[in-house]
Design a protein around this nucleic acid. Sequence first.
DNA 1: ATGGGTCAG
DNA 2: CTTTCTGACCCAT
Length: 488
Amino acid sequence: MSKPVQMRHMPQIAHVDVNCFYASAERAFDPSLEGRPVIVLSNNDGCAVTCSPEAKALGIAMGEPWFKLAPRAKEWGLVALSSNYELYGDISARVMELLGRYSAWLEVYSIDEAFLGVKGTPAELLALGREMKAAVRRNVGVPVCVGIAATKTLAKLANKWAKNNPAFGGVCHWDSIPASEREGLMGRLSVIEIWGVATRLTKRLNVMGIFSILDLARADPVMIRDRFSIVMMRTVLELQGTPCIPMEEERIGKDQLIFSRSFATPITTAAGIRQVMSVYGQQASARLAKHDLQAKVLTAFAGTSHFNPKDTSYPSVCVPLPMPTADPVILTKAAHALLPHIRDGVRYARAGIMVTDLRPTGNQAPLSLFENPHEERHVGTLLEVVTKKYGRGSIGLGHGGIRGGPDWAMKRDMLSPATPPTGRNSPSSKPPKPMPYLYDSTAPAPPERTHSHDHHPRSPRPRPRRPGPHRPRRHTAGHPPRRTDLDR
DNA sequence: ATGGGTCAG
DNA sequence: CTTTCTGACCCAT
């Protein structure tokens, strides 16, 4: 008895992500790094955030402080690089552009991950996955793995499986695996391996006797909803193969922007904090302007190190702005409201500002023009132009513009030299042949969320998107596969 | 509405 | 000297 034809054409979701993205991006830029142990360091060159497989083989773990590694780097032939987000953003854009050719339904989930709506027979889906993997490798130069399944949650799991089990060759189509094997896997994996479940939820689930992914998949969704949340229930349903997390439209409009940083060395003076606040005020202004937004509220904060439990202090102030603004002078002044709360001698390890209550520029009363002379004179714009031309730190208001001086600047001593080559590996150099079974705009839309408790309103029939210019989320290649037995 | 908690990457 | 920096959403208040 053969299955109805439609069964073989159920919409599925492909999850694609780049293996150890930052390290791979550095390699795409500098192929001589291929085969060598490479790590990419966090801000301030503090610790390793991404390790190439060769680096992992040396026993280097994610989060390993660089100062511990440095002495042995030479003997290991270890290449350590400061994180270079410009490079990663560029590589990311190329990957996404390429993936966009394989489906009208691309959701850029993070700087190195995407979901694609796909459909076809199992054999076709597998072929599609392999084709995408090969194309990205060929055209952009980074390795990816692909997981394909009926739901996002399962697609991510399949991807993880593919990554950890060489037998898959980097591509795993969930439904093509015998059920007994899938259950074997789910039975061996802790719930913490699931998308959306971390330490807290794991503990709570464990208390209820739910330890493995299989335990959770077999739990009663309603009970889970009552004891946890609708979100966790969706996870359960998704594990059972019922799509509940739909493909998302590109997120438009943010609710808040945060600018904060840990310092290379603690700041111990109000003067130092003042300087930092000035820089953040200007950064906030530039970002708001870029997105045509204005803020109504600014929060400024500072804090001592979490690792030094004595003498802690976390001052913060919330400043309602007289009118929605993106003006650097006003924002900087507002940020300085934190200063009275800063005590000299306290070792502040980080500080930042947050702008909230954001709204699009342009729908305020004209009166505000006169109340806001800086805006009228385009001070913000000028700052941006100069900054773009001469680099950050070359100009600034008040104490923000001191160049080279501040020792709280990020250390990036091992930065890769420049932006990556264009042309050579550029995706456009060899466009992939479209596959006959692409998920196209005339095909049924991807699964709708079955429970509509969801924040971002979306059109009932999501429209297909081209990948367009992306605003990939920031990302550290974090959450490194803590030891799993995905590969038996 | 707002803030604390939780998660992701 | 376990991880940076964001961003978002859930949920209780």
